[in-house]
Design a protein around this nucleic acid. Sequence first.
DNA 1: AATATTCCATAGTATAATACTATAAAGCAA
DNA 2: TTGCTTTATAGTATTATACTATGGAATATT
Lengths: 146, 146
Amino acid sequence: MMKLSAKVRYGLLALLELADHYQQSSFLQVDEIVAAQNIPYRYLMQLLISLRRSGIVRSHRGIKGGYCLTKAPENITLLEIVTCLEGIPQPEKSGQASVESVDNLLIEDIWSQANQSVMQLFASYSLKSLSDKRKESRKSNQMYYI
Amino acid sequence: MMKLSAKVRYGLLALLELADHYQQSSFLQVDEIVAAQNIPYRYLMQLLISLRRSGIVRSHRGIKGGYCLTKAPENITLLEIVTCLEGIPQPEKSGQASVESVDNLLIEDIWSQANQSVMQLFASYSLKSLSDKRKESRKSNQMYYI
DNA sequence: AATATTCCATAGTATAATACTATAAAGCAA
DNA sequence: TTGCTTTATAGTATTATACTATGGAATATT
């Protein structure tokens, strides 16, 4: 129903790494992200380029280059991220070229509502809240190994 | 984001036709559905078979055969329909075989929430409500031609 | 029973989307 | 300059989607 694409999963995981690194005011290299998460190198590149184009991260080339967030993690919503990577959820055009019959409008209306509710949910998550959640989970996960 | 597949669109349009025909306690043939909506014949067959298997419609063969709904349109939710056609929205397995890391769980949790909200929306629509909506739209659409 | 009409079922193909890769170029710092 | 980094374009492999072909089985009418 809601398909979770590798694109979003990878992009989000990368951004979580960048969020953790946000305080250090230095750039995190793609290699380091790849090491932390298990993401195909060249594929991640493309995602980072998209994220840079839409202003979520910025980059620096050269020997101490890499990527970092442009804003604080609490000011980046999951909605921005998904929208950037997946593109705008456009009405999908009913196949047979713009025959906007009553029936098609009816169906698109419902799908639009579904989109709205998902987008609302995504807007309620910031990168920081996700990062915090992750830290929590890690902590309580550690306890099993003591 | 929410992708509206042809499968669901076609299936839903077919069911709307069956809903309109529900009173007549006779069977509506696939040809008639194809004539009303513009759906590829053999493709629609498969959808109808799926819908029959999950008990949403029943069929009758032979010279006065066809399809009809098994229950009244007000007792069929959009959720049943979508679930039948698209299958259960399963967690999608993180690609690299069941490595359920903390990070993957975090992401799957969010997607599960998104699914929940969409499913809740779909559950709130019955086939009858959609059929009524369609009739309304048609009526107000007619007015432009007077 | 014969026959026409309908659905049933499996399997196959064509197109498009997704995920991933290759390669060359260009910027930056030491 | 030289070695490190990102940038950009384009190409391939895999998978999902949408659709088709064909033969068969059930049913109602004659």
